[in-house]
Design a protein around this nucleic acid. Sequence first.
DNA 1: GCACACATGTAACAGGTTACATGATTTT
DNA 2: AAAATCATGTAACCTGTTACATGTGTGC
Lengths: 181, 181
Amino acid sequence: MAQKNLLPMILLGLIQQGPKTGYDLKKIFETEIGEFWSVKHSQIYLELKRLQSLEEIEAKTGFFGNKIEKTYYEITDLGIKRLEEWIASYDDLLSVSKDEFVLKLYFIKDKNDPRLEDLLVEQYRIRKEKLEHLKQRRRIVFGEIGDKEKNYGHFLILDHAIRREQEYVNWLEEILDEQNR
Amino acid sequence: MAQKNLLPMILLGLIQQGPKTGYDLKKIFETEIGEFWSVKHSQIYLELKRLQSLEEIEAKTGFFGNKIEKTYYEITDLGIKRLEEWIASYDDLLSVSKDEFVLKLYFIKDKNDPRLEDLLVEQYRIRKEKLEHLKQRRRIVFGEIGDKEKNYGHFLILDHAIRREQEYVNWLEEILDEQNR
DNA sequence: GCACACATGTAACAGGTTACATGATTTT
DNA sequence: AAAATCATGTAACCTGTTACATGTGTGC
């Protein structure tokens, strides 16, 4: 939301790791970052222009090896400064997670509501699927043994996402068990 | 977000439980619902007008007992229909939870990054505080024994919120332990 | 009398989604 | 030849935040 604009930080953070095109960034959001952040490509290109006008990134347009014209962005000293200041700051935003299923539950007052069973079963299916997807991601990115050294922060948050999703699944399982007693 | 407008559903759900003024709704968001949804009063009044123009709620303005003029809203048959259809539907949105701390971690590659320790300690403090707040809420709303019968859905989601926050705290504790080894 | 809670709105703006738009290259 | 992916943008619209605005009732 408006409140705190974190997209610039994500873009600066990704560009710091090496020059990127808008399309590169879009791809990263679809795979790696997609687990915990989402954004549309239209927004990315807009924000890149804005960061450029703030002189926090620089653009290099041309034909790099192939035939397609691309615009690569690189971070400037100003951009690095902004990124580092943000990472070291403490005023992290605690946003509420807007979960539609949880909201529905709030309006179900009775344990024997006939709609409850179906909603729970469906949510369980979805959440279980997401959990498996996250576990697979960990295997792909960090291998079977979980080599956390090579990218510590990323390992930690993937681990966090899995544990959170596991907790969600456990919670649903317990409710379903109680329903069937 | 634009994506899926859930505010109308929340308002309909709350108004269905009995006539409410915009201010009543604002208060509910500040306390009960505040744990898992947030909205500003300006948005509430706007949305109420919209629901009224859709004939999903009806307004009754006047002086009720006291001297202050209030506008009470009541749900209509059309509103009930929309609400019930939503609750019974399966196409729940799975939104990503945009957590600023988690995002920062993503950009910390090295386990021995000097900034890590302070960030972890601060986040631990905040999350622990939130966990205690949630536990207190459960005691206030459902008592020491946890009488889940009186408002099943609400009990479930408060329980879910507590378990999720507990998992967050455990995760941070483990990282801190590993840091100090 | 003053502060705080009650009570209801409007307006400007920022951020994000959806749709529109275009064209090149690679894969099937 | 067609479909998919690469690659980059613009425009309309909606939601939500922030700020502005106003007035009443209650407790100290």
